[in-house]
Write a protein that binds this DNA or RNA. Sequence first.
DNA 1: CCATGAACACGCTGTTCATCG
DNA 2: CGATGAACAGCGTGTTCATGG
Lengths: 121, 121
Amino acid sequence: MNAEIRGRGFLLKQRSFLKFYLITKIEQQKGYGLQMLDDLENEFKPFAYSPTHTELYKSLHELKDEGIIDWHRQLKPETDLQEIKIYRIVDQEKANLYKKQMKVELDRCYGLLRKALQDNY
Amino acid sequence: MNAEIRGRGFLLKQRSFLKFYLITKIEQQKGYGLQMLDDLENEFKPFAYSPTHTELYKSLHELKDEGIIDWHRQLKPETDLQEIKIYRIVDQEKANLYKKQMKVELDRCYGLLRKALQDNY
DNA sequence: CCATGAACACGCTGTTCATCG
DNA sequence: CGATGAACAGCGTGTTCATGG
């Protein structure tokens, strides 16, 4: 379990980070895939982090495989006949557990970086 | 330059992190390779991070290739006839530059994690 | 072109093997 | 066995290619 979230190593994996963020975004009904990617890019621009669409989709697929989310196809409203996928939490318990575990992991990494900043300056 | 320190991505690489820490340890004359590794393991135990000896040596070799450090062989004092390597900074300018760039990178990652903690809880 | 996805390739890092006193 | 190092293998992630509106 935690083995999935942190691979016995240094800092957390990007995949876990994205899955974690996506859970929150889906809870808040923040649109479809590329839409969420766009949001993330903007949010993280100050931190020079720009996730790729491939990583985003792989994260969504993993969340589905783990039974945390689900999706259904739908036509993009208003504009045209483009098809998109709308995501939704199907197991809030699992979602909460994932976020809880990630909180521990984020705190760990946060502390590690703080230590580095304190030790070396 | 920065491309070496951060690979266009998410969080910083372990290698950079270790090189950065090793510079400080060498500045403080903290013994030889495995000795420093042992120190790091103890320091990071609360953060469940335990670097490997291979990564440590690769970091030291890179620092040497970049002309930041140097070493000479020496017999382990007092105890027995074991040979060890003693490291030393040979270009303090470069060392300072590396640490300065890493400071920027650490701050970036630190901010990114803080944002994650704020956004999702 | 947009949205989603798969295939492929590269690079980081851990596990294992090697050498020398 | 301690210290250093090389060779090898796995896997996370970015780049490229593919498909369907």
